[in-house]
């Protein structure tokens, strides 16, 4: 994978590549992508894709109301809370 492709992929993945990481991580990504190309040896023309081992169609649950008691506990996870409001970091 060339450097430009690596940077584009990193941007899509929201990962900032440090200069020091480009060589090592870039090398490992290229090694794995080359390994993935081994899959080209197999003829897959007649095969349907398997997305899931056993479930062949989407499963839905009834759209019904269930009370949850977790709200306060989940709010407590926020690093900065004012009453029941989550304070977001100042990014201006």
């Amino acid at each position: 994978m060339d450097i430009a492709e690596l940077y584009t992929t990193a941007e899509l993945a929201q990962i900032k590549l440090e200069d020091s990481e480009v060589e090592s991580l870039g090398g490992e990504v290229s090694q794995m992508v080359a390994y993935f190309k081994k899959m080209m040896e197999v003829s897959v023309d007649a095969l349907e894709p398997t997305t899931h081992a056993f479930i062949k169609k989407n499963r839905l649950r009834p759209d019904t109301f269930h009370p949850s008691t977790l709200a306060d506990d989940i709010l407590e996870q926020s690093p900065d809370l004012e009453d029941r409001f989550i304070c977001i970091p100042n990014v201006l």
């Binding site: 690596l6 992929t9 899509l12 990962i15 990481e21 090592s24 990504v29 794995m32």
Partner: peptide
């Protein structure tokens, strides 16, 4: 960048690719 280690970054990059 600060939260993930090298192996996780590698796999996220591969998956995105």
């Amino acid at each position: 960048d600060e939260g993930f280690g090298a192996e996780v970054k590698l796999r996220i990059l591969l998956g995105t690719y």
